[in-house]
Every structure is written in C-alpha cells, then in structure tokens.
Design a protein around this nucleic acid. Structure first.
Lengths: 359, 359
DNA sequence: TTGAAAGCGCTAACAG
DNA sequence: CTGTTAGCGCTTTCAA
C-alpha cells in the first residue's frame, strides 16, 4: 500500500517496512551530490564524469539496493515512460484469439524500449473516463487504441491536440497514425466464387457498430454484387467474437433453411463455432458447405478439417504499432504514419480447390 | 511525452500544449484553498463541509477540466492505486487460451475497485528486474503472479517482507496468498481407467520446470501406479503451450509406434493439436484413441469431436485473485488466504462413456 | 470548517 | 565537471 507511518516507514498491509533509500543517501555514501547521482543513473549524455566517480555512485546504489521512486521521477521530469493500451471491453480478450497475440508483441516491444504498459479496458463502445484519467492525469506518454470507433470524440480531440496515439484501426482523421491490415476480402470472395459457389453466407465477427466488422460485411456484399450473385440479408448473420456466437449463427442459418454452399466467417473463432454446428447437423465440410475464416489464429490449421483462412500478422501489427508509438513519443519522424499490412489467403481443406459443393 | 518547455507548457511529440490546470487554479476559481479542493475531490471522510462549498469546487474542477496529476498524487500520498501483473513470457499470452481469460477478469475487477493495471512480462523463468523496478520503485501497491516458480527468490523475499502478492500457483511459502485450481487429475484418470484404457499417453503443456505442469505429470503417474498400470516414459511427451507442440508431440508418439488407446493432454490447446495429428494419421477419436484435455477453453466444445476436458474457472480465478489482492492492499483481513477452486470433469465425445477402444 | 505550510524524492537549470 | 537550489503538483498535519 504505502501509507506513510509516523516514523516515515512504509506500511504494507499491516507490516511496517523501513524507509527506502533515497538518492540522497546514495549521494552521501558515494561522497557526491544528488545531481551527480541523477546524472550517473540516468546516463545523461553530454556529461563526462570520471569513471571513478561514476563507479562509486553505481556501487553505492547497488549496496543500498537503491531504486528510484517512479512517482517522484515522473513528477520531476514530466516523462512517464509508460504507454497505455485501450481495449474495448475485457471480454474481447476472453474469446478472440487475435487480440492476445497483438497484446503480447506490444508488451515485448514496449519492454524492450523501457516503457511500462498500462492496460485499460473500456466498457461500451466508447468511454471518456479512460482517456481522461490516463492522458489528462499525465499517466502515459502515448496510447495504442484497439479497434477505435469512428465517432469517438475524445479520441479525435486527442489526435487533434497531437497527443501520441497509434490506432489499430482508423477513425478517418487526416492526422491519425495507424497500423492496420490490408483487407483480404477480395481474394476470399474470388476464391469462393471461382470454386463455383453462388450462395455464400456470411457471419460477422462483431456487431454492426464495430467498423472493421461492418467494413468486412460491406466488402462481402460488394464482391458478390460485382460477380452478379445474389446479395441477400438472409445470408448474413451477426456474430459476437466467440465460437459460441458462430455456432448459434450457423444454427440460425440452418433453422431458417437458408440455402448456401459456402460460409465466409468474420474470423476464425466464429468459423470454428460454425463448423461445429455444421458437423452436428451432419453436413460435411467442405463437400456440402465450404468454410473460410479470417485471422489464421494458431489453432486454425488444427481444426477438422483444417481451416482455409486469411493470414493476418498480429505479432507484426503489435510490434509496428509499438515502435511507431515510441517514435512518436520520442519525437522521431514517422516515415510512414499509416501502415497497411499485407494479408494472405491460406488455402486448407475446409475450402480447398478440389470440388464444387453440390448445394 | 511531457518534456517541460521553457514557458512551462508541455511538449507532446513536437507540439506545445498549454499548461494543465492545477489544483491551485481550481482553488482560486472556487475561492477556497487547495486543501479544501483536495478534501472535496478525494471525498475525505471525517470532514463535513457545506455542500455549497463542495459544489463550488466541483463546478470549478469541471469548468477547468481538471484531472489531478497522477504522479504528484502518488508521490504525496505514497499510494499508487496500481497493481502489477507478472507473466512469464509474453508468448504464453499468444498461445494459451486460458491466460487471456484470467487477465480479462483481473482487468475488470481492478478497474471496478479503481486500480490501474500494469503488466510486466518476464522472460525466462525468473527475472529480478521486473520486481525491482515495480516494487522497489514504488510503482505498484500489490502484485499478481501467474504461475510462479518455486525457486524465485526475489518473490519469496517479497512475501517474507509482507508485500501484498497473490499467486496463481504456489511457491510453498507458509505466508503466501494464492488462488489455484484444485487438481482434477484423479477424476480424469479414473474416468479413463474406468473405460478400460490401460495404456494412457500424456503430453504435458509446458516444460518440466513449470511446477503446475510437472505436478500434473506426477499425478498422472501416481494414479496409473495405483491402478497397477504400466508407468512408462515412452508414453510421455513434453509440450510447450501451443497446439503446434501438441501436434508434434502426438506425431512423435505415433512415429515411435508407442501403443496407447487414450491420451491425457496437459491442456486443451495441446489436445487440439494432438487431435489434428490423430486425424491426419487416420485414427478415429474416440474409437481408436480417446482424448481428454484440461481447462475447458471456450473452443473445447466446438472441436471435432467435442473435447472431454476439465473445467477450470479462469474468470473466477482472476476475480478472486484480484479481490484478495485488493483486500490485502487495503489492509482488510483475508479470511481465506489460500483458495483452491473446484474443477470438474466435463465429458464430451472425444472420450465419452460409450465404448472401450479396441487396442 | 478552512487555510498555511511542510514535505514526498527526484530532475535540471544555473552557478561555481 | 560538480554542487546548490528551486521547483514538479499534490496530500496532510497542524493551527487558526
């Protein structure tokens, strides 16, 4: 906890701990001033001090087990060395296998550059307090926003102000910085249509409000149209991230006796759930229904049958976003503020090139 | 970023932002002292001030868009309102579906209690710097450690000192606080043995060093022994979290022509990979090889066939750990410092109660 | 009930 | 090249 007790020790829970050493004590022990200690420990450049002094300070610090107080340092320097990660709803983390991977690489790259990571999950599609406390309270130097929403005004204000922010998505602001995946809906639809499918169902991975999801849906419709195939609402169902929602969506399609010979699922997790429903209904994949997913999560190649899907690069997306943000924070120039990563159709057996389903 | 420019504005990237309002300005605008502002904004109890004053302060704060500087507050109060999450290796997050769920509920409960969450991923099985910077630098009030290692001395020191820490696992320290799952290896083995299986293979979910994984392995051996069944090293393979490692482990079993009629996988993800290898080899599940997993991840019931597994409660584990930690931090008494959550065997078709496999 | 004042531990001008 | 010193913005004791 850190309540200060009368003798200036710290109380943790119920125990009283002795004072922590301060930079002053390190200075005393090394026989120098606190300034010197600060310079040595922060490796301030432009300052050349004798290596003997430097070493004395280092030794003293180690001997006392000195670790600078983070809050004091932040207050004095105005720098937090912390980045914030904004997630819409913790629940995405629970069921979508893509996000943890992005998170993971963000953690790795941040740590590599000496940045702490603070995660904030906002409920509902936007949430003002998250930004307020983090940004206005000077807790973070920059922000990564997962799947931002286009009418998130607080975020747009932040971008207007020039606060360092990298989006995993887009809000359509001219000055925004983002790292997104290039859409691969076209190859998917071409593949499906090329195989002779005429009635292709689609299950979104998220409710309509989520722009990535609705853009995927719009593309699906567009490519059907371009191929002069029927675009019908009865072929579309809305999922919500989880395999379970994919399962229900597929059952809804089946229950409504919608005719289709292929499914394009908004993400792999949804596809896996839908495949389970198909198996249960006794329909064979890909013979009776071909299935294509999106993301190529680690499990995709281990499903039955292995899932045809679009490979998207979560680790790279996280890494690039992290690096871009850190460049932004440290005032480096950003050669490419809007990055679109390539994605690639991976053909496996759930929708191979083998035969045209009967329908 | 937050470098201070000459005029005391803040520099973000390259832009200069105006000064943020301080509590002093709020006080001025409300016509009171900073003390009063602090009292009102922190809802200090034991202080009764006229609601008119209180309201004036609130209005002033809102008008100025005042958000207290987090670092200053931490420094002055000695309280950080932040908890640290320690993960061993970001990669666990990428491939194990259990951990993101625990994380998710930890985020939720922390936020509910007004705590910020800072995530640190340590590489290797222990890593001293993570604790040092976080705890010694007074960045956090408490710590949740995922899968702690028994010979993690820094952690044991922390527990000795009484620093608030909740483990998702155990280091065998008498004063440790933890929330773990009760082991369900026995029901698994009983189920398997009850079905008539005599040669049961096991694929661990992690290398031997990880205590949870090696304990699972030890139990597997013990129950085989108790049933007078052969305990053989050739039946055991070591996985590393991912479906891919499960796939390779199963192929290694197959390549070595090891005879077995059932597999107990260390977790579901491993089981899924192993099942893919079995399918590829043309072996039917559960007829030729029955499969049991562990964790009951969301996808487990949507595999082909649906996976028999042990249901463990990640969301509850995260929630309880979070609540226990917050109680610890706030000095509340902890009725139950060592919680073992119940787990339950969920029987699905990958290892049903239907028939005894041939071999 | 409210206000004055003393730090919290560190950084970074500035002076020596 | 090193030390002195003045804050950073807030909390909290103590006195009025």
């Amino acid at each position: 906890m850190g309540f200060l007790s009368p003798d200036r020790g710290i109380i943790w829970g119920t125990q009283v701990k002795p004072k922590r050493p301060t930079s002053y004590q390190v200075a005393e022990l090394a026989g120098v001033s606190r300034t010197t200690v600060s310079f040595v420990l922060n490796n301030v450049d432009g300052i050349n001090l004798p290596s003997s002094t430097r070493q004395r300070v280092l030794d003293a610090a180690k001997e006392l087990g000195y670790v600078p107080d983070a809050a004091a340092r932040k207050l004095a320097s105005g720098r937090t060395q912390t980045i914030g990660l904004l997630l819409h709803g913790a629940f995405q983390l629970e069921i979508d296998a893509y996000i943890p991977q992005v998170l993971s690489s963000l953690f790795t790259v941040s740590q590599k550059h000496g940045f702490q990571v603070i995660v904030e999950t906002v409920t509902g599609l936007r949430q003002t307090r998250a930004y307020r406390d983090l940004v206005r309270g000077k807790q973070i130097d920059g922000l990564v926003v997962f799947y931002p929403n286009e009418d998130d005004e607080e975020l747009i204000d932040l971008i207007d102000e020039g606060f360092p922010a990298v989006l995993l998505g887009s809000v359509g602001h001219p000055n925004e910085h983002y790292v997104v995946q290039r859409s691969s809906i076209r190859p998917v639809m071409q593949h499906l249509i090329g195989l002779g499918h005429e009635r292709i169902a689609h299950i979104t991975f998220a409710p309509e409000e989520l722009s990535t999801s609705s853009r995927r849906l719009a593309s699906y419709r567009r490519y059907l149209q371009e191929a002069n195939l029927e675009v019908s609402d009865e072929l579309v169902r809305f999922g919500e991230y989880s395999a379970e929602s994919g399962y229900y969506a597929m059952n809804s399609l089946l229950r409504d006796k919608v005719k289709f010979s292929a499914l394009f699922a908004g993400n792999d997790t949804i596809a896996l759930g839908a495949m389970a429903a198909l198996h249960e209904a006794g329909l064979s994949i890909p013979e009776e229904v071909a299935v294509v997913g999106y993301d190529d999560i680690p499990n995709a190649r281990f499903s039955t049958p292995p899932l045809t899907t679009v490979r998207t690069p979560p680790l790279e997306q996280g890494r690039l976003a992290g690096e871009m943000l850190i460049d932004l924070i440290t005032g480096k120039s950003i050669p490419e503020p809007k990055i679109r990563l390539d994605t690639k159709l991976i053909i496996r057996n759930s929708c191979g090139g083998k035969r045209v389903p009967s329908s």
